[in-house]
Design a protein around this nucleic acid. Sequence first.
DNA 1: TTCGGCACTGAAAACGGTTTCAAGAGCAAC
DNA 2: GTTGCTCTTGAAACCGTTTTCAGTGCCGAA
Lengths: 405, 405
Amino acid sequence: MQGASHLARCAPVIGSSCPCSGATSRDKGYVDASVSQSRKHPDRSASRLGPLAGKPTVSTTDKNLDPAARVTIREIAAEAKVSIATVSRVLNHPEQVATKTREIVQAVIERNHFVMDGMATALASRRSRTIGLIIPTITNSIYASSTQAIQQAAQDQGYSVLLGVSEFSAREEAALIRRLLERRVEGLILTGADRSQRIYETLERNRVPFILTWQQAEQPPHPSVAFDNRLAARMAMRHLIELGHRRIGLICGRSATNDRALARRVAYEEEMRALGVPQREWLIFERDFEFVEGRTAMHRMLEARFRPTAVFCANDIQAIGALAECRDRGLSVPEEMSIVGFDDLPISQYLSPQLTSIRVPASQMGFLAAEKLIGWIEGKAPPASELLPVSLVQRGSSGPPAKGR
Amino acid sequence: MQGASHLARCAPVIGSSCPCSGATSRDKGYVDASVSQSRKHPDRSASRLGPLAGKPTVSTTDKNLDPAARVTIREIAAEAKVSIATVSRVLNHPEQVATKTREIVQAVIERNHFVMDGMATALASRRSRTIGLIIPTITNSIYASSTQAIQQAAQDQGYSVLLGVSEFSAREEAALIRRLLERRVEGLILTGADRSQRIYETLERNRVPFILTWQQAEQPPHPSVAFDNRLAARMAMRHLIELGHRRIGLICGRSATNDRALARRVAYEEEMRALGVPQREWLIFERDFEFVEGRTAMHRMLEARFRPTAVFCANDIQAIGALAECRDRGLSVPEEMSIVGFDDLPISQYLSPQLTSIRVPASQMGFLAAEKLIGWIEGKAPPASELLPVSLVQRGSSGPPAKGR
DNA sequence: TTCGGCACTGAAAACGGTTTCAAGAGCAAC
DNA sequence: GTTGCTCTTGAAACCGTTTTCAGTGCCGAA
């Protein structure tokens, strides 16, 4: 394992930052004049310790005294009696260094547990080898799938992933994107296509390639790797309709802040309209992504004037909550209530009854997005958008409506 | 916009043999001599585009030509006709800048969608305002809880979180830690306490504060925020024993690579021994963290010579799989088989029957760890270790063993 | 001997910021 | 008119690397 390895996996989470400074004191701790690097500022201790003026004076000449000192390439160079350029070469292009020199330097590096400063490296090389990923939540495990795939793909190509969690907030997402740009991600994978024009502008002005996932972009055709949410939701609805359901409820995410939820809701409404069934607002529930939200939505649904015979839950999390509510109310699924979910989480086939759901290509989507993004970063043409297929996985939670109703 | 050329960078003649042939790579575009910045190396193209020597010559006089150009603080300073120091102040200490100047600079920043280079910032300020977090897997949602709490706490204090996923591999974890150090995290939150001495040395040599979670450190008492896995597992076992179970199976993670699994297994073995029940290897299954692994383990358990009447699953993921297997085999839970899980995932109360489980303080642990770590980073004394309480949540999946057997 | 070429190494500019220090401007008090 | 202060501002050192360019030493060929 030589020096600058880019191969580990690392999906960082970005939070918020705040400007603030800290006074750190430091002492170089080496003297070898033959390797003197022109460090110019004559009065380091005074300048660095400025604010702490009242403290007892520390001898500037002592070595290895400052507890915050960090080993740099210079100390390594000094100890190995070579130049910093050579140390850098040992780390990055070992074949360019004479075997003997290389071994000496490597030994010194080992001995000192030296770790390169990636900030300096990134700054000097103008490569961060990092891509940014923004997902809306970490608790819905469907994003764990795509995140894992993205990370894997990135790692395979020598990139790290910086992860940001927006919690479905546009404000938060904008802040996150900014922080990712500050960290000089070389590309970005975003969730959903609906965001302010200004963000896209910033991205383009900063020349950061980005790919949308989970939802294709329509108006300005940004590159995306997604699936057709409307079509997918329509598949779920068609399934219920073909089973004979007419009064169908909907539980989905907040369509105002989630364009996937919106697309699915639109599909629901279209199908209901095509069915000739009038819109009934009391059959539509937009909730957060929590089990309990699906449960309470179903609870209210069951108290409606005309109970639906089936409910389409536009995500499995809410479907699981809805299912539990039916069970607790003694309502048998699918005999008295059909439920179709969306996402086909791994857990969904471990429920009872198993959940009928729309299987989405989360892993594949993530993998492809990462691959295309990295290709783009490395000079290929901007990738074409791609729509991945989805499928309905029919299981025990959906069936024909009860006869006599 | 005055001086459109302020932001221009120009791509100089490619392949020019360098020595100051008059081809200045960067067109300053502003004239105020008082703001001259001393950029020294005259020939950027050679360094940036070196390998592409054969390409057609591009006019040196054009502006805005280099597609890789990025707006820096210098361009902003030039356009606003101030020094870079002032721009930096506007960004970091706005109150130190005259209102009028500040507004001008801010306008220029806005107009150019300027985003600071965090690498340069971190390098210059010696603060990355980032903490590292390593978890074993992203797919077990129990880590989503702690991760979220950590991120929240970090964000509240102005820090970002860099997340690494080790997939239960020590090698991977070591590589991850190295990368986190390269990225100059100011502190680290690790999962579990069992890792090679060398890693701890590297951490200490690099003076990076770290806190262990999920498992306290014993031999060298590193700071930790954890709970007592052995005690917790013992609670689960006691619960089953008090219900009257004697033949109890165990499904847990790989104790070789997971010290939490080991501690829980040890507790299981201790309780079984205390019970006077001889060790039966065929009642112990170490598996990966997948639903299906719990399922297959239970499958094999049910084929054993003497079926257990209860199974302690040292994590809910496997418990869910085990539960599903029982259901599919027509074995009623808890009448014919009791199951106790561990973690108390949110999903566990949405199953049928609901899962009896050990509730662990994942969020609290994460939050506390992050708070302590950041306190430490900001100069407080190394925090004391803390053991958080756990509790048994009794639900439908556990009950007394069937009478006649 | 002279020279070209090659393998290796070091000096120094550059990356894009932060921060210290000093100086200029404006103003009040003496 | 000085003096002393505060408020702003700019120059320049510095952060820890990468990378270019220019040696230097050695060797074989002319």
